[in-house]
Design a protein around this nucleic acid. Sequence first.
DNA 1: GGGTATTATTAGACTAATCTAAAAATAAAG
DNA 2: CTTTATTTTTAGATTAGTCTAATAATACCC
Lengths: 257, 257
Amino acid sequence: MAVESQKQSTVSSTVEDYLKVVLKIEDMKQRASTSRVARHLDVADATVTDMLRKLKKAGLLEYKPYYGAALTRKGRQMAVRILRRHRLLEMFLHQVLGYGWEQVHQEAERLEHAVSDLFISRIDALLDFPAQDPHGEIIPDARGFRQVEDDLCLAEAEPGSYSVRKVTNSDPEFLAYLDKVGLRPATRLSLQEKSPFQGPLKLLPESGREAVYLGLEASRSIFVLPLKDRPPASAPLPKGRASRGTVGRSGRGAGEE
Amino acid sequence: MAVESQKQSTVSSTVEDYLKVVLKIEDMKQRASTSRVARHLDVADATVTDMLRKLKKAGLLEYKPYYGAALTRKGRQMAVRILRRHRLLEMFLHQVLGYGWEQVHQEAERLEHAVSDLFISRIDALLDFPAQDPHGEIIPDARGFRQVEDDLCLAEAEPGSYSVRKVTNSDPEFLAYLDKVGLRPATRLSLQEKSPFQGPLKLLPESGREAVYLGLEASRSIFVLPLKDRPPASAPLPKGRASRGTVGRSGRGAGEE
DNA sequence: GGGTATTATTAGACTAATCTAAAAATAAAG
DNA sequence: CTTTATTTTTAGATTAGTCTAATAATACCC
């Protein structure tokens, strides 16, 4: 059949932000309820109700009153496109302009709506088609494919050896702190103990001056990969990364034929 | 006296565009009338009337009904800041991302409103503090100083030898044409004759395959510097540029004390 | 200097995105 | 299964930026 390259209707940057948030919530396996979306965007609930109705009419998401929203293929496609832009921009700011990983998010947040596709493809090439951003987040490819991320939340991990896969928190203060104690993507660490009753985690980062006591809440934004348990000093650095996720479409059936 | 570093109140990108246009018109020694501003921005005259009143109230320009607008120091400061951003961005797109000089304008037009001051200072350093953009336009420095441009419009020039200083037209088609016939900033050329009755100019660019016949209207956007008349083949390339403009404040009395 | 042409302004309206406060639906708890 | 608490939606308003059509001011020309 004819492959209609459906031109991507242009949407406002506000709409892009809504789609991005719904995608983020869906990725966390949560229901994209009015209030949850509102919290992420820091707007009033009523505003979200209106917008969701509008986005439904535009065919970008399903919306059931009093229930919530779910992206359509078209909406997801757009959301993933923004996600790709955001992460590529972060990588560019970090690698080319020397931004710290705690600085990249805010700038990318504005640029993702302003740069052209040409800009994106140029920085993609300049960076040699990076697979991850400075926080360890996977960068969707140009067609919208996203590698499945097979990582584990530190908050759920058992004591043992791990390497940091990604940090899903963009608060500059928090990231600066992690940096200070030596917790960055690719850092190896040993989780030594988890205190009971929502207590902190005792960690030993490889860059390892001393043990770090990290609050449980903070540990929820750190994702790790288990390391084959070998003597940490002689363990070979897993070049690509020991176990990779399989490659799959972004979302059920999204993307073009 | 105490140096109040007056924090630059933030304005919308729309306002930035208005200020930029008024600056551009003033730079052309014209009156910033409602209709002229409207034409530059491609909006209705009525829209401009409203906006000028608003900008006057914000202290960014003077506005006399039925006459026009003139930037205040504060307004000019903001406008020059955007101009600097625009031109630095163009240079960056050209030098780092490999954009053609006919492609840079459109992208910079969006980015100038979106990038942070950090971004600007980083690309400024990366480019080694360039003095001009890809069209030969002077880039104001970080304090808002602008070199006086002592160039001559080709439309007003007498036959003789010149080098191209700048091209003040951002139409991609037009720039692509100039490029094709070998007319770019720094290109040396000889203006051979000017046909009477608004006729075309006969030019011989140094990169010089053959003579170029350029319409008078087109010649208005090309600015040149006269060359000391020596045999063109042996003339030494003026390194910095033979005669430089003096350095002065951007606009009468603008800038901080 | 009065009539015509041009240029500006006013008036009224629209859209996108937002808000607050009130009303309605759903969920939770006895 | 009724009452209460929570969540969501509706209603009504606001702001920024824009438009068109009508009116008013200025400029130009014999």
